[in-house]
């Protein structure tokens, strides 16, 4: 197996009486695209929010490159090289593309002024333009344009390029193709492939199994807060995965999974 980048061990998380995450463990390898599947409410978003520091887990360990880490804030996760693009939008629509790309990591002059330091606007704009060019966003986008003027697909591309730009080890995408048109969806899938080619690992959450078979190396299925199946894409097919997700004939499939 390729070198391990991220390993989760027995993660647990409850919201009051709802056990959103029961005992989740899995490993993500370098340059690997893993698809996380499961019905609504299975706990997928909860799992990735725990990894990206949105909230702490109740129990369980997270390892990055074999080192045990504690992720208490989104800043911790970012510093560990984990970049997340959340389901509930990742951009501030009233800010320009450039300001969004560097939100939380703004280039400034006079650093000693802390939060009062003036933004290095020239650098901000140049770096943003260079990045937009590098990730090859087909339509010419102005780094000064407000994000609210962009299409859903363009926004998703901006969010993904931001994740790539900070050379993240792990990029997590929560339903990145939601609400996107055909062309925009292909754009996002192309991004995922490029990201992998550049050596990043990707954790992809989606409800579209067809997309999974186009880009993923491995599939993980969650049900009611638990990981119920784990298979490499080459060893399975669409119908099998579909029935695992819906829970049809679970016992037989679980046996099959264990046998492998």
């Amino acid at each position: 197996m390729v070198q391990e980048v991220l390993r989760l061990q027995n993660l647990q998380k409850s919201f009051g009486s709802v056990r959103a995450l029961k005992n989740a463990s899995f490993t993500l390898g370098e340059g690997e695209v893993v698809a996380l599947l499961g019905d609504n409410g299975a706990g997928k978003s909860t799992l990735i929010k725990a990894i990206s520091g949105v909230f702490p887990v109740d129990r369980g360990d997270i390892y990055v490159r074999g080192q045990k880490v504690s992720i208490r804030s989104t800043r911790d996760a970012m510093d560990l090289g984990i970049e997340t693009i959340h389901q509930d939008t990742s951009l501030a629509p009233d800010l320009s593309i450039a300001r969004n790309l560097f939100l939380g990591r703004e280039p400034v002059n006079l650093k000693w002024l802390g939060v009062f330091a003036p933004l290095d606007l020239a650098k901000l704009r140049d770096a943003a333009s260079a990045l937009l060019k590098r990730v090859g966003i087909s339509k010419k986008l102005d780094a000064d344009a407000l994000v609210s003027t962009l299409s859903g697909g363009e926004r998703q591309s901006i969010a993904i390029s931001r994740a790539m730009q900070f050379a993240a080890k792990v990029i997590i995408l929560d339903e990145p193709t939601n609400n996107l048109g055909v062309e925009e969806t292909h754009g996002v899938l192309r991004f995922v492939k490029e990201v992998r080619a550049a050596g990043h690992s990707v954790l992809l959450i989606t409800h579209n199994i067809h997309h999974v078979f186009q880009v993923a190396d491995r599939i993980i299925v969650m049900r009611r807060g638990e990981i119920v199946a784990e298979q490499t894409v080459a060893d399975t097919d669409l119908l099998t995965v579909e029935s695992i997700i819906t829970g049809a004939d679970m016992s037989a499939l679980l046996k099959e999974t264990r046998a492998k």
Partner: peptide, 28 residues
């Protein structure tokens, strides 16, 4: 004017009001 338009803090203030979750996810 300086804070809202030119300072790092202003970028954060606008981002929080525009999409709080997005700002928090970036460590603001």
């Amino acid at each position: 004017i300086y804070i809202l338009r030119y300072a790092k803090l202003g970028n954060w203030i606008s981002a929080i009001g525009s999409n709080r979750n997005a700002a928090v996810a970036r460590g603001v």
